[in-house]
Amino acid sequence: MTDTGNPLLAGQPPCVVNVGIDLFAETLRQQSITVVQVLWKPPPPQDDDLLNLLDSLI
C-alpha cells in the first residue's frame, strides 16, 4: 500500500485491542490475529464530595 501515514494500512495483519464483547476477540484469534482483551467495566459515577474526601484521606 502507498504510505498513508496510517500504520494500520501498512499491509501487515492488524494488532488489536478489544474493549467489550469477548466474541470479537475470539473471532480474531481464530484468524491468528494478535488481540489484547481489556477487562472493561463502566467507570464509577463521579461524586465530587466523595472525590474531595478521598483527596484528603490519600
Binding site: 464509577p44 466523595l50 474526601l53 484528603s56 484521606l57
Partner: peptide, 17 residues
C-alpha cells in the same frame, strides 16, 4: 457491592476529618 464502602468512607470522613 460498592455502596457499603462509599457509606463507610463518608462515615470515616465525618469521624476523622
Amino acid at each position: 457491592p460498592e455502596g457499603c464502602f462509599t457509606a463507610a468512607l463518608r462515615a470515616f470522613g465525618k469521624a476523622y476529618q
